[in-house]
């Protein structure tokens, strides 16, 4: 994927660029708002990682507002040291698709950027999601694996739906907490792990190969077992 990183801190920028390139993305970098805006407006990217405080007279919010006013809908992930709830709200209101605060774990950033870039591909409304032998019917809210019906609680259904929609991508605990429960704080207890492990009991345990995998230091990934 083509990703634009607009970040003025040299160390942070190198860290992100290196990490994204390592997993095979094409990365452009700009260290100020003006050039960043120019690149974002004149080229096509799958996602933009945007710092909020930038030199060059154009800060992150202005950059994004300008971009959105030109009907450019490239997914944008804010990466900022401004961590207050109001900052987050302002970032999302300006047209940001996601908001992360520094310091951050690269795994979290990567997972979120990839999720955004894929979402940008808009496949239209779906009625059915299929991963390997796991099928989810979004209309009747039924789940089958290898033809066998699986009974899920409403929340388990949403958790599985989230994992399936992001099949093949890393999904972090914070993403699950936000996407499935709509909570924007980090509980001290390992609530997400417990819920995922319960889901595994129903979706993976009775079958030969597991679909829900734990990704060390990052989160979870739903994918077919590698052959």
């Amino acid at each position: 994927m083509r990703i634009l990183v607009v970040e003025d801190d040299k160390d942070v920028a190198n860290f992100i660029v290196k990490g994204l390139k390592e997993v095979g993305h094409v990365v452009e970098h700009s260290n100020n708002g003006r050039d960043g805006l120019f690149m974002a407006a004149s080229e096509t990217f799958d996602a933009i990682v945007l710092d909020r405080m930038l030199p060059g007279g154009v800060d992150g919010l202005r950059l994004l507002e300008t971009l959105r006013s030109q009907n450019n809908n490239t997914p944008v992930l804010f990466l900022s040291a401004m961590a207050q709830v109001d900052d987050r709200v302002r970032g999302l209101k300006a047209g940001g698709d996601d908001y992360m605060t520094k310091p951050f774990a690269f795994a979290e950033l990567l997972a979120r950027v990839e999720a955004l870039a894929r979402r940008g591909k808009g496949e239209g409304p779906q009625t059915k999601v299929v991963v390997a032998d796991l099928e989810m019917d979004l209309l009747s809210r039924g789940v089958r694996r290898a033809g066998q019906k699986i009974d899920l609680q409403p929340r388990e259904f949403r958790l599985l739906e989230f994992l399936m929609r992001h099949a093949g991508q890393v999904v972090t605990r914070t993403m699950l907490l936000e996407g499935v429960w709509d909570y924007h704080f980090d509980p001290q207890t390992n609530v997400i792990d417990v819920h995922v492990s319960r889901l595994r009991q129903k979706v993976d345990k009775p079958f030969a190969s597991p679909l829900i995998h734990t990704v060390r230091n990052a989160g979870y990934m739903l994918r077919p077992e590698a052959p």
Binding site: R155, W181, Y183, P187, T189, N190, V191, V194, H195, R198
Partner: peptide, 13 residues
């Protein structure tokens, strides 16, 4: 109730 649902599993565990 939403919070309870989130934590019930942890409590049981």
């Amino acid at each position: 109730r939403d919070l309870a649902e989130l934590y019930e599993a942890v409590a049981e565990d």
